[in-house]
């Protein structure tokens, strides 16, 4: 069982390390295959990525990729609403939260495919290495 969770972490971390949103991958793995309760999966996801993100962030700052002013501007409203979101999650039954999260994933994947299609039309003639 322990090995299984290391494996889930590896997959989530791999996508996360590539900047593709590892959490959106780790949570379904923990819930669907790992059989964890939704709230517990979410907590594990939150904590598991903290050290990796912290190290990655240091490298990004050193490389000059972080726009601190942009981040702070978004962070202020985000911090307030994250507290509201966390309390909303506590007040929501795990089975329902799982369904809402599932709908969120479906929405994200559809949005991903649509944006890809749009980009392909815009840059059809160009060989882009950096997209989606």
């Amino acid at each position: 069982m322990t090995v299984l969770f290391v494996f889930f972490g590896l997959i989530g971390g791999f996508f996360g390390g590539m900047g593709m949103g590892g959490g959106t991958f780790l949570i379904p793995l923990l819930t669907i295959i790992g059989g964890l309760e939704q709230h517990l999966s979410q907590t594990i996801n939150l904590i598991a990525f903290i050290p990796t993100s912290f190290i990655a962030l240091i490298f990004h700052v050193k490389n000059g990729y972080v726009e601190v002013k942009d981040a702070l501007f978004l962070l202020i409203p985000a911090a307030v609403f994250t507290v509201i979101g966390a309390f909303a999650a506590r007040g929501t039954d795990g089975a329902l939260l799982r369904k809402i999260f599932g709908a969120f994933l479906v929405f994200l994947s559809v949005r991903g495919f649509l944006s890809r299609k749009k980009e392909n039309q815009l840059f059809k003639s160009r060989n882009r290495k950096d997209n989606f």
């Binding site: 889930f8 996508f15 594990i44």
Partner: peptide
């Protein structure tokens, strides 16, 4: 479950 997952995300994160 947290600790094994966390070991995975650290190694996976670097690999990714």
């Amino acid at each position: 479950t947290l600790i094994p997952t966390m070991i995975g995300t650290a190694v996976g994160g670097i690999t990714g």
